[in-house]
Simulated scan of single mutants.
Amino acid sequence: MPDPLKYNKNFDKLSYEEKQLLEETKKSIADFVEQSPSISDVNYATRNAHAKTYAVLSGHFIIDPHLPQDLKYLFDKEKYEVIARLSNANLKIKKNKKDIPAYGFSIKIKDDTGRTISNYPLVNFPLFPANSVSVFLKMFTNINKFYAKKWGNWISFAKNIWKVIPSLMTFSFIKHSIALFLKRNDFILSFDYHSVGVYRLDDKMMKIKISPKDIQKKFGTRKEVRSSVKSYFASNDYETEVFIQLCYDLKDQPINKLNIEWKNSPFIKIGELRFEKNSFQNSISCDNELLSFNPFESAEIFQPVGKIQKLRDEAYKVSLQTRKKINKLLKYK
């Protein structure tokens, strides 16, 4: 393999128009979170994406002893503490209804002192539906306004949805959409989870995938997802392998084109995530809504890369600040 491409901050640069649209999106996020207790009929403020928490888990990230020599310097411990959050991508928490199988598996990796090293919001669908930052921001702003009952122009929203459609017509996107449909009833812990966006690995750039070991795909399928996860951890450990792909060529591994899979980049195992039985924590709690998995709250060498990723920084901060303001009041009411 050739040498991996080096990170360049130009991959992250937003245009003036994109920055202006981001400001409007941030306002819509704050409005949504402020109204989220009534939107989802819960007694706390939720996130404006992946609102439903199925479980919060505590476990460990075990470094692979056979890690390639040129990566070993990045991990000075054999084991790191991990906090994980299982979630659903919907903005609104549905009750007594079957959720769409769009799941999240967010990971917070900490050192021995409890300091966060890196955050990785992973999802069970490896691709992103939009490459244009402007189109995505306009669409997401309109969605937030709709839920917050500040619905404006239907025509504008329809136009933005229409502009996303071409990004959904790639071979990769269609293939994974069909695969997700066929696995729609599978147990949440049986899926692979992906970073979708790109991250730094010091001066290199990577994507991340975790794959479970020895898991029953149909475990607890007749139960609600939260109940099935709780039931699983009552008597089972959970292990998942952690792989990365490195960027060698922008043609085969594009940074800002997230609707196609990377190719010609082998998966490299860097370790395993291990969660022992009884690691399930109370998922319905204001404290868990104060947890942040903002990937920009990571060490510099593990920061996100790319324009779509850049949007997450401000969006996560606004969402967390608004949740903190509301949930701290609710917690001590």
Rank of each mutant, 00 (worst) to 15 (best):
I107R: 08
Y73N: 09
D203Q: 10
F173Q: 08
Y54C: 03
K9L: 10
F243I: 05
Y238G: 04
N264W: 06
K92M: 14
S279D: 14
T25F: 12
V123M: 10
S156T: 12
P304F: 08
T113K: 15
Q253H: 02
Q309G: 11
D202W: 01
Y316T: 02
K230S: 13
I188R: 05
A84Y: 08
P166V: 05
H50M: 07
I155R: 06
N48S: 14
K13S: 07
H194C: 01
W151R: 09
H60W: 12
K223Y: 12
Q20S: 08
C247R: 14
K95Y: 04
L21A: 09
N153K: 04
I29S: 05
A89W: 11
N10F: 12
N144F: 00
F32A: 04
V42A: 01
K263S: 10
G306Y: 14
A45L: 06
Q309P: 01
N90Y: 09
H176T: 02
F128M: 10
N48V: 00
K108S: 15
N288I: 06
N327F: 02
A179P: 00
I244M: 11
K204H: 08
P4D: 03
F173H: 11
Y199N: 15
V164S: 09
N185V: 03
V42G: 02
K150I: 00
C247M: 10
P166Q: 07
V82C: 11
E18G: 01
I268H: 12
K9A: 13
